[in-house]
Design a protein around this nucleic acid. Structure first.
Lengths: 258, 258
DNA sequence: CAGTATTTGATTAAAAACAGTCATAATCAT
DNA sequence: ATGATTATGACTGTTTTTAATCAAATACTG
């Protein structure tokens, strides 16, 4: 199929240059700018590229952070909007635990440059903060899950038991009336340790997560203080979340970032 | 001086994000877009940033392996040759601790794809193995040193105390008759914990390290089992090393068609 | 082969970013 | 202090990019 082949070449071009302007790409590939624009849009949905005014950035985020988690792709705009509402929940000078996951990764990106103490079990998140002089970074040790790039397991739990933070920001894979779920038993245990270490727990989850079951039960709805989602969230679920005593923050995934 | 300070923060922001839009930068720094535009122009003249329509790209270093340690470049051929002699010292199926540092990083690159259990305190090394399906990866937690990307401190030491491995591969900053030295006290403590966890200790150090003092004493010469260096090593030092009971491996930094 | 679906490229108005200019404010040296 | 120098922020018209629309071309299906 020609179109797919072109998209592969396109991504290759973008990766090689790390940034490319749309007119240039249209020229090299011999198609119209409109087509490039559509292709790029698709690549962005897959999380492979990042669209900016005037061109495209390679977002496979350098060969360094390889496609950790294929779901990076889906609901990118919602996740970005959620991140923008979540970041202000953390205040300068605070200590915060950042879980792995594509939504928390977006939050992390917005926190770079702030004056914070960051604790994380996520390799991609750690890479964001490692070179940032304005924040301290503590890495949670343990076994790395190759698929997600997160540490987990008993070593991680043990280290978390000796920490104390103001806020924990968690990702989840599903939310039902019974509570929050994730798809990895070891990870859930580590996340529970993160919750125990924090005064306040913030969960970030786009609206597709509601009503979705997953393997391992993380905690009851009431155990979370803040829930940040997007406006596509069901009315009934909004009521349930509020009834469970959570502060609900809804992001509007309309506009792209500032 | 306010202006210069702002430019530093500006570059820091750009580096952390790798791309930033002008309006965003103006907002964060609390100055007008015109000023940002002028600052960025200056940064571009210095080669620190790259201007594109709609924003700025960070141009410093390779986006691939971010500026961890400027000495990355120095003695590159020697380090690579040392790595090539060191990698075979580890056998498939073994558990090995990899220290941070540019030489051990080269060793790590050669170990990717091997069937190993890898334990490391180095973020760059962890990134190498994170996506590698053929090896297990355990990350040592703790505080990240922003300059080197290594974890260190009491949390790291504690985690290492509960581990047991066949081999530890260490970097050092200096070697004197009194033993091995590194330039960071916390790191040295963590490295001592690494040594305690291992049956055999391998030190990789290019020949410029001999006779060089550094801040913190790591261990005596006799505490190390293998020393891998390059053929530029002084004859007298070769004798001393052998007298201390170490296995000495000398790499030939051959000039190849790289 | 006809009909439908998808992909493509041109065209448009609207939005964003650009370079340049100028007056004001801050800083510095005398 | 004072005058000169520089840094800053607002404003302008111009250029570029964008999103959206639509008709033509291409590929699929029964």
């Amino acid at each position: 199929m020609l179109a797919q082949e072109r998209r592969n070449r396109l991504l290759e071009l973008i990766r090689a240059r790390s940034f490319a302007a749309l007119p240039e790409l249209a020229d090299v590939l011999g198609v119209s700018e409109s087509t490039i624009r559509r292709d790029v849009e698709q690549l962005e949905d897959q999380g492979a590229a990042r669209r900016i005014h005037g061109g495209v950035l390679y977002a496979g985020a350098s060969p360094k952070i390889p496609h950790f988690d294929a779901s990076q792709s889906a609901r990118w705009k919602e996740k970005k909007a959620i991140a923008q509402r979540s970041a202000p929940l953390v205040e300068d000078g605070e200590t915060v635990i950042l879980d792995g996951g594509s939504t928390t990764y977006e939050v992390a990106r917005l926190l770079v440059g702030r004056s914070l103490h960051v604790v994380t079990n996520s390799l991609p998140v750690a890479n964001l903060f490692a070179a940032d002089a304005s924040s301290d970074l503590v890495l949670i040790g343990g076994n790395i899950c190759p698929r997600t790039g997160n540490t987990q397991g008993p070593l991680a739990d043990k280290m978390l038991a000796s920490l104390r933070v103001q806020k924990t920001i968690l990702s989840v894979a599903g939310i039902k009336e019974e509570g929050f779920f994730n798809n990895n038993l070891l990870l859930v245990q580590t996340e529970q340790a993160m919750m125990r270490a924090a005064d306040e727990v913030i969960v970030v989850a786009d609206s597709s997560k509601f009503g979705r079951q997953s393997l391992a039960h993380l905690c009851a709805l009431g155990a979370v203080d803040y829930l940040v989602s997007d406006s596509g969230m069901d009315q009934a679920w909004q009521a349930k979340v509020r009834a469970a005593g959570m502060h609900l923050v809804l992001a509007e995934p309309v506009v792209e970032g500032t």
